[in-house]
């Protein structure tokens, strides 16, 4: 696997806010179809790293590549905007707080970007919305407005909205953290389904059980560095680093409380 060229390649990512160094020389290679979990304490830089991938939070140093294209390449402003809008169509992102568009129906949410960016007809857009909503099990809610959905349903719509752009990579930033416990599973099931379809995914999560069950690789981050990484069995069952051990012990204690 290591001899294969990485699909998503983060090289020496560095990010500072003023004097605060949030990411300190992080590298991460993700192969096509691979699922990588990023875990770590609050403030360790997980979201910053994830959001650097689609340039929502631009890096101050380092490179991000998707296949043969550098995402954060230096270009004059106008050209860069064109480039990044194109790039982002290939990278789906799911947020902790869903960020559905409240003024649009579920259908409107899912079809907005494909209609605007892919120049497809209304019929094609509807078919696309139906296909994606079927996948997340919400076809019957297609004409609802977001305010009438539960948190779990909202997040599934947000996933369908991202999938409608047919992305090559999906990024999840604590997709289930804002959900009531009983609603977490329905979202996890959708993500598992994507895993079975070999979607390339980078998942920031606090759910160790889910990460262990679904992911190929786990990164443990602390204070802007990758402290330890490896297969989930290794990281969760038998971590080498003391900081990893402490984090998991604390996390387990919290989870069992």
């Amino acid at each position: 696997m290591t001899d294969q060229k990485p699909f998503l390649d983060i090289r020496n990512a560095q990010k500072s806010y003023g004097d605060l160094e949030v990411l300190k020389d992080i590298s991460l290679q993700v192969q096509r179809g691979q699922i990588v979990a990023i875990i770590g304490p609050s403030g360790s830089g997980k979201s910053t790293l994830l959001r650097a991938i689609n340039d929502l939070d631009p890096l101050t140093g380092g490179e991000v590549w998707l296949e043969d294209m550098q995402i954060n390449k230096k270009l004059p402003h106008r050209q860069y905007e064109k480039h990044i809008n194109q790039v982002r169509q290939n990278i789906g992102m799911v947020f902790q707080h869903f960020n559905l568009f409240p003024h649009l129906s579920v259908r409107g949410n899912v079809t907005l970007a494909p209609k605007m960016l892919k120049g497809i007809s209304d019929d094609e857009a509807n078919a696309l919305a139906e296909e994606q909503l079927e996948k997340v099990g919400l076809l019957d809610r297609i004409d609802y407005y977001p305010s009438r959905l539960s948190g779990g349903q909202k997040q599934r719509v947000a996933i369908a909205r991202a999938l409608a752009m047919k992305p090559k990579v999906m990024l999840f930033d604590e997709a289930t953290s804002a959900l009531d416990p009983e609603l977490v599973e329905e979202v996890n099931l959708v993500m598992k389904k994507l895993a079975e379809e070999h979607m390339t995914m980078v998942i920031v999560t606090h759910e160790m059980g889910f990460a262990e069950a679904v992911c190929d690789r786990v990164l443990f981050m602390d204070q802007g560095v990758v402290v330890e990484e490896g297969p989930p069995s290794k990281i969760f069952r038998n971590p080498d680093n003391e900081r990893t051990q402490n984090f998991l012990r604390k996390h387990l204690a919290n989870a069992n409380r």
């Binding site: 982002r88 169509q89 789906g92 992102m93 947020f95 907005l112 970007a113 960016l117 947000a158």
Partner: peptide
């Protein structure tokens, strides 16, 4: 988050 979600989808 609304602007972010829209930009993430590729909208200018």
């Amino acid at each position: 988050g609304q602007m972010e979600a829209a930009r993430t989808l590729g909208l200018s």
